[in-house]
Simulated assay, not measured.
Amino acid sequence: MRKFAITLPVLLLTGCELGTALTNAGTEKAQYKSCIINQIEGLQSSPGIEGIDAEVTTDRAIMACKHREEIYVVEMTDLAMVLSGNMVKREKFLEDEEAKLRSDLHDLAQELVIDRT
């Protein structure tokens, strides 16, 4: 009950912004995943690339999708700002969470490479 009492005012304050922020963050994660898959498929179909290991493939895919990673971090930061009612400073959130967000995306890329090779 206590969690509900704390969460309800935040949800009322954020209103429609929350739905938009959630949608944008989800869309960007899907875009990142799609970019990684496209890179993996491109690397696999390139002549002379046979036999490269999963680590090299992962690194190349991550580098090629860096722009998607940046957009995802921005969208997740926006989501955090909406959820916190802008009570947390953007810089503080990025200081605390940016490395984890990027690490999660890199882990996703690695899993996709392993699944597809």
Score class of each variant (00 low, 15 high):
residue 32 Y to V: 11
residue 108 L to W: 05
residue 4 F to H: 10
residue 16 C to L: 10
residue 13 L to V: 14
residue 116 R to E: 15
residue 37 I to C: 08
residue 96 D to W: 07
residue 96 D to Q: 12
residue 43 L to Q: 14
residue 41 E to M: 09
residue 115 D to T: 08
residue 65 C to R: 09
residue 36 I to H: 05
residue 103 S to C: 01
residue 17 E to L: 06
residue 7 T to N: 04
residue 22 L to M: 12
residue 83 L to E: 14
residue 113 V to P: 15
residue 61 A to T: 04
residue 64 A to Y: 08
residue 50 E to A: 13
residue 39 Q to Y: 01
residue 115 D to L: 07
residue 77 T to H: 04
residue 116 R to D: 15
residue 72 Y to D: 08
residue 50 E to K: 05
residue 17 E to N: 11
residue 19 G to Q: 00
residue 86 N to Q: 13
residue 29 K to L: 15
residue 42 G to L: 06
residue 85 G to D: 05
residue 28 E to S: 10
residue 8 L to T: 12
residue 96 D to F: 07
residue 67 H to P: 05
residue 89 K to G: 10
residue 91 E to W: 00
residue 110 Q to C: 02
residue 24 N to Y: 00
residue 74 V to T: 05
residue 38 N to L: 00
residue 1 M to E: 00
residue 100 K to W: 01
residue 98 E to C: 05
residue 56 V to M: 10
residue 19 G to L: 03
residue 41 E to D: 14
residue 89 K to M: 11
residue 52 I to P: 11
residue 48 G to S: 07
residue 96 D to V: 14
residue 54 A to I: 02
residue 41 E to G: 13
residue 113 V to H: 08
residue 47 P to N: 10
residue 60 R to T: 13
residue 16 C to T: 15
residue 110 Q to I: 00
residue 55 E to F: 01
residue 8 L to A: 05
